[in-house]
Amino acid sequence: MISTELSMIQMLNPQRHKLALLQEAFLNKGGTIQVLEGPTFEPPPPRHEPPPSMKAAKPKREPPKQNWLDKMAQRDLEREERAAKRELEKSELMDRVRKLAETATYIQAELQTGLARRTLQRLAVEGGFKFQPAINNRRPQRASEAYDKKNAERIMAFKEIGLSRYQAMSRIGITHKTFSRLLLKFEIDYPIRGDVQVTS
Rank of each mutant, 00 (worst) to 15 (best):
L163T: 11
N151F: 12
K149Q: 12
S53N: 06
E102T: 04
L111K: 12
E80M: 05
Q74D: 03
T113M: 11
I161A: 08
K185W: 02
M11W: 14
Q10L: 15
R82Q: 11
K150T: 11
P64R: 09
F158S: 03
P39G: 12
A104T: 07
L12M: 11
R79H: 05
E81V: 01
K99N: 14
I155P: 01
R16H: 03
T4D: 01
Q66C: 05
E81S: 11
G127F: 06
L100T: 04
L27Q: 06
L163H: 13
I107G: 09
R154K: 07
Y147A: 11
V196L: 00
H48W: 09
R79M: 10
T119R: 02
G114I: 10
L115Y: 01
E153R: 01
S200N: 14
Y190C: 01
A146T: 05
E5I: 07
I135M: 10
S144V: 08
K177Y: 02
Y106T: 00
P51V: 07
G127C: 00
S180R: 04
T40G: 09
R86A: 05
R142S: 09
P43A: 04
E42K: 10
Y147H: 07
G194T: 08
K71Y: 12
A73T: 14
Q108W: 00
E160T: 12
D70Y: 02
E62S: 11
D70I: 08
G30P: 14
G114H: 03
T4L: 10
E153N: 01
Q34I: 14
E92G: 04
P59L: 02
Q141H: 04
R82P: 00
A57P: 15
L6E: 08
V198R: 13
A143P: 00
P51W: 02
K71M: 12
I161V: 13
S170N: 15
R96N: 01
N151S: 13
P43Q: 05
W68T: 15
P140D: 06
A116L: 06
F186Y: 15
N136G: 06
R117A: 11
K159Q: 06
R47M: 01
P59A: 03
Q108N: 04
R117C: 10
E110N: 10
A101F: 05
Y166F: 11
I9R: 14
G31M: 01
P52A: 05
T40F: 00
I188T: 13
T113G: 03
R122Y: 10
Q132M: 02
M8K: 15
R98Y: 10
S180Q: 07
N137P: 00
K18I: 06
R86T: 14
G30H: 12
S53R: 04
K90H: 05
L77Y: 08
F179Y: 10
L77R: 15
N13D: 12
E80P: 00
D148R: 05
D189L: 11
T178F: 02
K130W: 08
M169A: 04
R154T: 13
S7F: 12
E153M: 08
I9S: 12
A73G: 12
K85A: 07
Q108M: 09
G162Y: 04
N13P: 00
N137D: 02
Q66D: 08
R165L: 00
E145M: 08
V198K: 15
A168S: 06
N67L: 14
M94C: 01
T105A: 07
L184A: 13
P45M: 02
E89A: 13
L115C: 09
G128E: 12
R96H: 05
